[in-house]
Deep mutational scan, measured.
Amino acid sequence: NQASVVANQLIPINTALTLVMMRSEVVTPVGIPAEDIPRLVSMQVSRAVPLGTTLMPDMVKGYA
Rank of each mutant, 00 (worst) to 15 (best):
54 T>Q: 03
15 T>L: 05
49 V>G: 01
56 M>S: 08
37 I>T: 08
59 M>S: 08
51 L>N: 14
6 V>W: 02
50 P>N: 14
45 V>A: 11
17 L>N: 00
19 L>C: 06
59 M>V: 06
44 Q>L: 13
24 S>Y: 09
20 V>T: 12
24 S>W: 08
33 P>W: 11
62 G>W: 07
30 V>N: 10
6 V>R: 04
29 P>F: 04
25 E>S: 09
3 A>P: 06
44 Q>G: 05
55 L>F: 12
4 S>A: 03
64 A>F: 05
12 P>C: 06
20 V>R: 12
26 V>H: 07
11 I>A: 00
41 V>S: 04
7 A>K: 00
52 G>R: 04
10 L>R: 09
62 G>T: 05
7 A>F: 02
36 D>T: 11
39 R>I: 12
41 V>G: 02
29 P>A: 05
61 K>T: 14
50 P>C: 07
47 R>G: 05
43 M>D: 03
17 L>T: 00
31 G>A: 03
26 V>A: 13
17 L>D: 01
12 P>L: 08
58 D>R: 08
63 Y>P: 04
18 T>Q: 06
31 G>I: 02
20 V>A: 09
62 G>E: 08
25 E>N: 12
13 I>H: 12
62 G>S: 11
2 Q>W: 13
27 V>K: 08
40 L>P: 00
50 P>E: 10
51 L>S: 15
44 Q>C: 15
19 L>M: 12
30 V>D: 15
21 M>K: 03
26 V>C: 09
34 A>K: 05
34 A>N: 05
48 A>G: 07
33 P>I: 14
41 V>M: 08
18 T>I: 05
25 E>R: 06
57 P>Y: 09
38 P>M: 14
6 V>S: 02
37 I>Y: 03
36 D>G: 06
59 M>T: 06
34 A>M: 12
16 A>V: 09
1 N>C: 06
2 Q>I: 12
6 V>H: 02
45 V>C: 05
19 L>S: 05
36 D>Y: 11
52 G>T: 02
41 V>P: 01
27 V>G: 03
34 A>H: 15
4 S>K: 01
58 D>N: 15
53 T>H: 14
55 L>R: 01
42 S>H: 06
49 V>C: 15
23 R>H: 04
38 P>T: 14
11 I>E: 01
49 V>E: 02
38 P>H: 13
39 R>T: 08
9 Q>N: 09
57 P>K: 07
39 R>W: 14
57 P>H: 15
10 L>K: 08
50 P>G: 09
50 P>R: 08
14 N>I: 03
22 M>I: 10
6 V>C: 04
17 L>A: 00
10 L>Q: 08
9 Q>V: 13
7 A>R: 00
54 T>L: 05
19 L>N: 05
38 P>I: 08
46 S>M: 14
8 N>Q: 11
7 A>W: 02
45 V>G: 01
1 N>S: 14
44 Q>F: 13
18 T>A: 06
58 D>V: 10
63 Y>I: 04
12 P>H: 06
52 G>K: 04
37 I>F: 03
6 V>M: 04
60 V>N: 01
14 N>Q: 11
50 P>W: 06
47 R>T: 10
32 I>N: 00
56 M>V: 08
13 I>G: 12
22 M>N: 00
11 I>H: 01
21 M>I: 03
60 V>W: 02
3 A>S: 15
58 D>T: 13
61 K>V: 14
